[in-house]
Amino acid sequence: MSVLEIRDLHVSVETDQGTKPILKGVDLTIRTGETHAIMGPNGSGKSTLAYTIAGHPKYSVESGSITLDGEDVLAMSVDERARAGLFLAMQYPVEIPGVTVTNFLRTAKTAIAGEAPPVRSWIKDVRGAMTDLRMDSTFAERNVNEGFSGGEKKRHEILQLELLKPTFAVLDETDSGLDVDALKIVSEGVNRAKENTGLGLLLITHYTRILRYIKPDFVHVFVAGKVAEQGGPELADRLEDEGYDRYLSDAPVA
């Protein structure tokens, strides 16, 4: 079993108005096989947490720690973190002109596995995963995210999740902008990945909708850069009924 531990994490971001603190002391422990949902209103720092775990240069860690089985994640570069077993499914994946999905997937798999995957089984794996996600085979020859619809981009993220087999995956608002059919397909992909590899999941979402398809073991409510409340799946049901107003009314004025 692996453990991803976040301790008293303070993160700021540079803006035109100067340094702005976003995360103000986040504590979180995720074990493989667990699914944690992080919910919260806009601007509460959910995406900042996701990008800080992945190592985006825009966010600077002021204090606190992130460790993976005791190893210091913050000391690793972005690619080292991915090779250590962390994965971030992005909310807005960027286009990479001239780089085909096939080439990209093979390059990423080679980097993470440390050696090129055996050709025959790799092609079979890619085809199988694409079929499961209802992706047309022509998709493989298109350039990464170029001209993809919102739903195609999210399916492509989950395709990578299934093929790269991380130990821990952070899904940053993977449900946003998806219609119900696409949401089901994407959720099935995530559940399949979990069944196959037993990974730990950090599911970041604004809405409770996706939690109908991906069952969380724990729910954490983020408000103003901190975990304001945590509990089991019943907390999500309560948020569904009540929304975030309860937290916002007694949140300190930032």
């Binding site: 972005v78 690619d79 973190r81 090779r83 990209f104």
Partner: peptide
């Protein structure tokens, strides 16, 4: 673009190459 590729385990140098080549 570089962040996206690196977040998939691809080293910075290799990521730059992929982008230029593309």
């Amino acid at each position: 673009q570089l962040f996206y590729l690196q977040a998939r385990g691809i080293s910075e140098e290799e990521a730059r190459r992929l982008v230029v080549r593309g």
